[in-house]
């Protein structure tokens, strides 16, 4: 495994491969958001789309995950047609930055490296990311855009954050193990004595 600087892992390599990955990720995110989500509360959905930035992050870095989330939200708004809720889109983007940070703490999905330790850090990242995104970014932006009371936007965002965390942890961790295993089998190399 090549040593890469933290900044590089964070930004990702912006070549054609990454651009295509962001595009495909955004398309997947958009479709899943529109057709694969279960509404549970005002402006809040239990959606499997949240997993996509995690995978993009694991393969390409945190900023590509952020881009996937942001563009994916835009795509979802365009094909679903329920209007543009920039307060939620930006919140989602920030969340993408956190949950896509997998390579920063050494989980390399494309090399088959994802252990229990990484799973625990990932879960913590999910909680922290949701807290920052929906406890801070989205409520403040909603308050600015609609002059809503922080209390109420917090409550709504809180429900969204809980739903996201649940999906990210309950579906995300098994999927990450599955993918890491899949990639491990593909890179069939063993260290020699």
């Amino acid at each position: 495994m090549k040593e890469q600087s933290l900044g590089r892992l964070f930004l990702g390599k912006w070549n054609t491969m990454t651009l295509v990955a962001v595009a495909v990720g955004a398309a997947l995110f958009g479709t899943l958001m529109v057709f694969g989500s279960i509404p549970i509360f005002a402006n809040t959905y239990l959606t499997s789309a949240m997993i996509i930035p995690v995978i993009v992050g694991g393969l390409f870095g945190a900023v590509p995950a952020f881009a996937t989330m942001l563009i994916g939200n835009f795509v979802a708004d365009l094909i679903g047609g329920w209007g543009f809720w920039f307060d939620w889109s930006v919140g989602n983007g920030v969340l993408g930055l956190f949950i896509g940070a997998l390579p920063l703490y050494g989980a390399r999905i494309d090399e088959g490296i994802f252990t229990v330790k990484h799973a625990i850090i990932y879960a913590v990242c999910c909680v922290v990311g949701n807290a920052v995104a929906f406890g801070l970014v989205t409520p403040v932006m909603t308050a600015i855009f609609y002059a809503a009371d922080l209390e109420i936007t917090f409550l709504q965002a809180f429900a969204g954050g809980i739903a996201n965390t649940a999906v990210l942890v309950i579906i995300g961790i098994p999927l990450l193990f599955l993918f890491a295993n899949r990639y491990k089998k593909r890179s069939n190399l063993k260290e020699e004595e």
Partner: peptide, 18 residues
């Protein structure tokens, strides 16, 4: 234009995903 290409590529991919 790289960002714009990402956008149009994303829309191009949706029918495939469907």
């Amino acid at each position: 234009y790289k960002i714009c290409t990402v956008l149009s590529l994303a829309f191009r991919t949706i029918p495939d995903i469907a």
